[in-house]
Structure formats: C-alpha cells, structure tokens
Amino acid sequence: MRFEYKIEGGDFTNAGLASSQIKKIMKQVGIEPQIIKRTVIALYEAEVNIVAHADKGSIKIDLEPDFIHMILEDEGPGIADIDLAMQKGYSTASPMVRQMGFGAGMGLPNIKDNTDELNVTSEVNKGTRVEMKVFLNK
C-alpha cells in the first residue's frame, strides 16, 4: 500500500496528519502496537521537521508485509552538518517554534531511536531527504 502527503512549511495546524492516518491504517491491518508506536514517533518528528524548518515537502510511505518505508523530501534551508543535527539538544528552530515546545533538539534523535534504518541527506539552501524504515516483525 502506498500513501502520499504534501506538507506546507509553517502549517502547524495540520502537523501530524500523515502520522495519525498511518497510525489508523497500521492498527486496522493488525500491526503490533509497539511497532506502530515506533513508526508514529519517527514519522511525526519527521513531519514536524518539515513544518518547522522547510518551505514545503512531501511524504511517500510504502506499507509492505515486512516493513514500512517512509521518504520525506523537502525544499528548504537544508542541514549544513547532519552529524551535529543528530545530536540531542542541538536545534536551529526559531524562537516562535521553540515557544510552542518544539525545537528542543530531540526530533532527529527520536527518529534514530525509533527506526531500524535511517538515511538523511541534505543540500544547503535546497532541501533535505529523510528515508526511514521500520521492520514490522521485530
């Protein structure tokens, strides 16, 4: 099953829409709650990253029998130093975003902790691509 979503940068009112729909679908097909939880944490953080940092982006999700594969691509400022961005507590979020309780520098670490495969590539002033995989039978 394939699912696609569009995300607008700065649109916090709809942040989490893809995550909640995917959660519903994974529940319907009877995937283990612990796996759904990991997927939802990673996907929500990746969604919020686009809303908080990018101009716009897209999500492509393939739900296969053995794994869920998620690709989030955005157009935006990109990440200059991905290793630094992966560190807990490091954030480039705006004061407005921080005031909402985002931008604590926990998004990418949460994604890393909750995915089985993670690949982040980025080009400054162009955009970022986050590819994540969670196995369904662990």
Binding site: I41, E45, F102, A104, N110
Partner: peptide, 26 residues
C-alpha cells in the same frame, strides 16, 4: 517539550503541560 513527550510518555498516562496549541492534542 513536545518531542520529549513524543519520545517518553507511556500509553494511558496523563500529560501535564502549560502548552495550549493544537499540536498538544496531536
């Protein structure tokens, strides 16, 4: 901090916060 809650809250817990925007609900 929303990501803190996202990563650490457990099923069925009550979340205590001063945040009041829609993302809290999400």
């Amino acid at each position: 901090l929303l990501s803190d809650v996202m990563g650490n809250i457990k099923d069925g817990q009550i979340w205590i916060t001063m945040q009041t925007h829609k993302n809290v609900l999400a």
